[in-house]
């Protein structure tokens, strides 16, 4: 109160600026939406290499124009997931199509994949499992199967390594027949 103001002392009226700042603040608060917590599985999905003995399927990007004899085939393990139009997995077969396809219970699929691939946890423990020279898993699923079920099997495959390195087995998806929905 006793402070003396000089004649030139100019005071800025900040009330208007404060009003505007509150407007801006309200806008940013109202439009704020935190991004959903999401995760992902990164896959390199080249068009599927032809697998000996697989016919009658719509394979992702299979090159049908070439003579089948000229095309290099990859050592692949095929997992067939059938759903009998129920949307959930009812039958599972695993194997090499030209040799044999073996029906297995769904719960034992992970154990069966161990026959062909090295499990990451075994690598860490220094144990040996699997033959290790298969490079690709072809998940050949019914088109009516729900996406969730396919992702569970993809998830299982990411627990293994293929070949001699630590690489993941190449996962390739293919649909057994056309999609009835369109």
């Amino acid at each position: 109160m006793s402070k003396r103001h000089s004649a030139e002392d100019v005071e800025l009226n900040v009330t208007a600026m404060l009003d505007m700042a509150f407007q801006l603040l309200a806008f940013f608060i109202l439009t704020f939406r935190p991004p959903p917590g999401e995760a992902q599985i990164f896959l390199k999905l080249p068009p599927a290499q032809p697998v000996a003995g697989m016919t009658g399927t719509e394979r992702a990007g299979s090159d049908e124009s070439k003579d089948p004899k000229d095309v290099k085939t990859t050592k692949s393990v095929v997992v067939n997931l059938l759903d009998r139009d129920s949307g959930s997995v009812t039958d599972v077969q695993i194997g090499i199509p030209s040799v044999s396809m073996k029906p297995v219970p769904y719960n034992d699929l992970e154990k069966e994949l161990r026959v062909y691939f090295k499990a990451k946890e075994d690598n860490e423990a220094g144990q040996k499992s699997g033959q290790g020279d298969y490079e690709q898993v072809v998940i050949n699923a019914s088109p009516t199967l729900r996406w969730e079920e396919v992702m569970k099997v993809v998830d299982m495959c990411t627990k293994f390594t293929a070949g001699k390195g630590d690489k993941l087995p190449a996962v390739s998806l293919s649909a057994a027949g056309p999609d009835p929905g369109g």
Partner: peptide, 19 residues
């Protein structure tokens, strides 16, 4: 893709992307 989505639908999109 939605959990309830058919595999055929997702596969169609993946194949189109690969093309």
């Amino acid at each position: 893709a939605d959990t309830g989505c058919r595999f055929g639908a997702v596969n169609f999109v993946i194949v189109e992307c690969q093309k």
